[in-house]
């Protein structure tokens, strides 16, 4: 058997693909979260970061293509494995108890598909920037470089309670998905044993909770008014009590 036959045609191979693609995506979402948490810094920070990412050019497209491939493989294998699992029991039991399977493990398909739907919306909103999905203003960095005002784009987006709610529910489901997914990865590639399975389970629950809280803090703090629009040219901007811009304008007139 060549390596492709092992990975895409055998039961354990397909699961290894699930585990490895899952791990890559976990790596991505950690990086993505850290990037997003820059929202709590002055707008300059996240705008410069976004400008840097866009400046990667072909590099950025290579990363995007790689992540898309990972996602496609993960979903494709999930569908394939699920269909095989359904076919393995043509007639179901009239009564069957659940003995120890966790609730998260039994709702992987549901949580996965809702997160996928959210991901598509999320990309249209913030990456493709479809007109009408949000506000896409521009600003300049301190050195005068014209950049997209990602800070304002995010704040305006999350000031919409429905967008924020959808976001919070989706990251909640993603954390739920990871709760089973993380431990599962270790089992699938053979790195889980009774010596540390209990630690592994606790660590992945802890990771899932922290991941959820950190993500939910972003729309949460926008809704709570902690993070405000800081671009004077965008509707909804409220002058702070001590505003250097206004003072300068007032001094001129």
């Amino acid at each position: 058997m060549n390596i492709f036959q092992v990975l895409f045609q055998t039961s354990i191979g397909k699961k290894a693909v699930m585990a490895v693609t899952g791990l890559i995506m976990v790596g991505f979402i950690i990086g993505h979260l850290v990037g997003n948490l820059q929202l709590f810094a002055p707008p300059e920070k996240i705008n410069a970061y976004a400008h840097f990412l866009e400046g990667l050019g072909p590099g950025l497209w290579a990363i995007r293509a790689f992540l898309l491939l990972t996602l496609v493989l993960h979903v494709w294998m999930a569908i394939k494995l699920t269909l095989e699992n359904k076919a393995a029991r043509p007639q179901d039991y009239v009564s069957q108890q659940t003995l120890r399977a966790t609730y998260a493990s039994r709702t992987m398909r549901l949580s996965g598909f809702i997160v996928l739907a959210f991901l598509i919306y999320h990309l249209l909103h913030f990456t493709v920037r479809v007109e009408g999905f949000g506000t896409y203003p521009h600003t300049t960095l301190i050195d005068g470089t014209p950049v997209r005002d990602v800070h304002t784009m995010m704040v305006v987006g999350f000031q919409n309670i429905w967008i924020s709610l959808f976001y919070i529910i989706s990251v909640g489901l993603l954390s739920w998905h990871l709760n089973h997914g993380l431990v599962s990865m270790f089992q699938t590639v053979g790195f889980r044993s009774r010596t540390w399975s209990s630690f592994l389970t606790k660590a992945s629950v802890l990771f899932s909770i922290l991941y959820f809280l950190a993500n939910a803090a972003i729309p949460g703090s926008v809704l709570a008014g902690v993070v405000k629009i800081q671009n004077p040219e965008v509707a909804g901007y409220v002058c702070p009590a001590k505003c250097a811009v206004c003072e300068a304008k007032n001094a001129k007139t």
Partner: peptide, 23 residues
């Protein structure tokens, strides 16, 4: 079918064989 790491097998096993053998 394929294993989804839920370990119902181990819980039902009359010899209580651990899922660590699956790993």
């Amino acid at each position: 079918g394929n294993c989804t790491n839920q370990y119902e097998c181990s819980a039902a096993c009359p010899k209580a064989i651990s899922e660590e053998f699956i790993a």
